[in-house]
Amino acid sequence: MSTSVGSGGRLLQAVDAPLTRSATFLVLAAKPGQDALDTIRSTLSGVEGLAKNVSIRDLSASFNCTIGIGSNIWDALTKLSRPAELHPLPVLKGSVHATVSTPGDLLFHIRSNRRDICFEFERQLLGQLGPSVEVVDSTVGFRYFDARDLLGFVDGTANPVGADALDAAIVTDDKGSSTSNGGSYVVVQKYLHNLATWSALKTEDQESIIGRTKLDNVELDDAPAGQQRSHKTLTTVEDEATGGEHGIVRDNMPFGSPASGEYGTYFIGYSKKLWVVERMLEHMFVGDPPGKHDRILDFSTAVTGSTFFVPSVEVLGGLAGLVGE
Rank of each mutant, 00 (worst) to 15 (best):
K52F: 11
T3F: 11
Q124M: 14
T99D: 10
L80K: 13
G324R: 06
E120K: 13
T99C: 11
V313M: 12
G287I: 08
M280F: 06
A320V: 08
M253R: 15
D288H: 14
G183P: 01
S306E: 12
D38T: 05
V187F: 07
N53D: 15
R21P: 03
L28W: 02
A168L: 01
Q13Y: 00
T78P: 04
N194R: 12
T43D: 00
S178Q: 15
E219H: 10
I69S: 01
R41V: 06
T139G: 03
V315A: 09
E204G: 09
P224S: 08
A302H: 01
A76G: 09
T203V: 15
T304Q: 05
S260W: 11
E245R: 14
L281F: 09
Y270Q: 00
P103W: 09
G130K: 08
L125D: 00
I210A: 02
R41F: 07
G8P: 06
L86Q: 01
D16R: 02
Y191S: 04
A223D: 06
Q189C: 09
S62D: 15
L150E: 03
M280N: 04
E325Y: 10
T20E: 04
P289V: 07
R123W: 08
K272L: 02
T172Y: 06
G8E: 08
Y263Q: 06
S55W: 03
Q227D: 13
D173K: 12
F108I: 08
T304G: 02
E134I: 12
V171C: 11
S60F: 08
F309W: 05
V96F: 12
T157K: 09
E219D: 13
N159W: 00
H109Q: 13
S112F: 10
D251L: 09
Q124T: 10
E122F: 04
P311R: 05
N252E: 03
R279P: 04
E85R: 05
L59V: 14
R10L: 14
L166K: 01
T20H: 04
K292G: 08
G318Q: 14
Y191A: 05
G127H: 10
T139S: 07
A84L: 14
G46F: 07
G318V: 07
I40H: 00
S95W: 10
V15L: 03
G264W: 00
S42C: 07
F153E: 00
D16C: 08
A320I: 09
C118L: 12
R229Q: 11
A168N: 01
G6Y: 02
S300F: 05
D251C: 09
F308N: 07
R115K: 15
E240T: 13
L322I: 09
V303E: 11
I248R: 00
L50W: 04
L28M: 08
W74L: 09
T233C: 10
R295V: 04
Y185C: 03
V249C: 00
T66R: 06
L215F: 11
R123A: 13
R10H: 13
L126W: 09
E85T: 02
